[in-house]
Each structure stands twice: as C-alpha cells, then as structure tokens.
Amino acid sequence: MSDAEPISWDHLKARQPSDADRAALQTTLIERAVAVKQHGWDDYRDVWSAGEVAGVAYLLGDVALLEELEEHEGSVLTRFAGDLYGFQGARKEIASGLTGTQAWFADARKKLDRATT
C-alpha cells in the first residue's frame, strides 16, 4: 500500500470554462479540421489524442473514421460537453439532450465551411 494522499478531483468539478475557453477550443478544432482537409489524416492521427481525433472527425463528418474509432455522435458530444461546460455544466447539458454542444459544433461547421471555400 502506498502512503500517498488520495487524488482530489474537486478542482475539476468546480471548473467553469469561459466563453473565451470555448472559442479557443473551437478555433483549435477548426484549424485541425482544415489541416486534415488539406493534408489527410496520416500526419495527425497518432499525434492527437483519441478524443481530439474523434472531435475533428465528427466536425468533418468522417463517419468511416468515427466507426473505426468505435465512436458515435453521442460519445463525441458527451466528451465535448465536459470541455465546453465543465463537470457540473456537462451534467446539465447531457440531461438537456446536448443541444448546446450540438449548436457549438454546428457553428464550428459553418466557420469551417467559410475557411475552406
């Protein structure tokens, strides 16, 4: 047995991402989607986390990759709800049907379309 103190996750439970945090996450996701559209997945799949790859694939509508990753819309949206709204906010977002997270991705898709046309 270790004498180490148990890990406390309380600081994460209280985390409240700001509008600026959400905007920065969206900008990063869009930039990565643009890179994948320009160069393909080979340079990125093994560099980004599984969640980041799934988020970009979902943004791009890459159903084949999502299936390969064994991800579906609900799992991607649930993961990103935590990033967008924090632990407590994500619980409410999930209970409401992830509508805010869906809207956030819809907005990101519009921005991606403008960036790539």
Score class of each variant (00 low, 15 high):
98 L>V: 01
31 E>Y: 03
70 E>F: 11
69 L>V: 03
57 A>S: 09
32 R>P: 03
112 L>D: 01
61 G>S: 02
12 L>D: 07
2 S>H: 10
53 V>M: 05
99 T>F: 04
105 F>A: 04
104 W>R: 06
108 A>C: 02
47 V>L: 13
3 D>Y: 10
45 R>L: 15
47 V>D: 14
89 G>F: 05
114 R>L: 14
26 Q>G: 12
88 Q>Y: 07
88 Q>F: 00
38 Q>K: 15
77 L>Y: 04
100 G>D: 01
84 L>F: 14
3 D>C: 05
20 A>V: 10
74 G>I: 01
116 T>I: 10
50 A>Y: 11
63 V>I: 12
22 R>N: 09
42 D>R: 10
45 R>K: 14
101 T>F: 02
62 D>A: 07
90 A>Q: 08
22 R>A: 15
20 A>K: 10
103 A>R: 10
53 V>F: 03
76 V>P: 01
78 T>I: 05
68 E>Q: 15
39 H>F: 09
84 L>W: 02
83 D>F: 10
13 K>R: 15
51 G>D: 13
17 P>W: 00
12 L>W: 08
41 W>L: 08
20 A>Y: 10
13 K>P: 00
110 K>M: 08
10 D>T: 14
24 A>L: 13
47 V>K: 14
48 W>V: 05
113 D>P: 02
62 D>L: 00
70 E>M: 12
90 A>G: 06
117 T>L: 10
46 D>S: 11
40 G>F: 03
85 Y>W: 13
30 I>W: 06
43 D>M: 09
101 T>S: 05
27 T>G: 00
24 A>H: 11
50 A>K: 15
10 D>F: 07
112 L>E: 08
30 I>Q: 05
100 G>H: 06
61 G>M: 09
60 L>D: 06
82 G>L: 13
114 R>H: 12
50 A>G: 11
115 A>W: 00
29 L>A: 10
20 A>P: 07
101 T>Q: 02
117 T>A: 09
43 D>W: 07
47 V>H: 08
85 Y>F: 13
117 T>Q: 13
12 L>G: 06
21 D>T: 07
113 D>S: 08
40 G>D: 08
3 D>A: 09
3 D>Q: 11
42 D>W: 01
12 L>Y: 12
13 K>H: 15
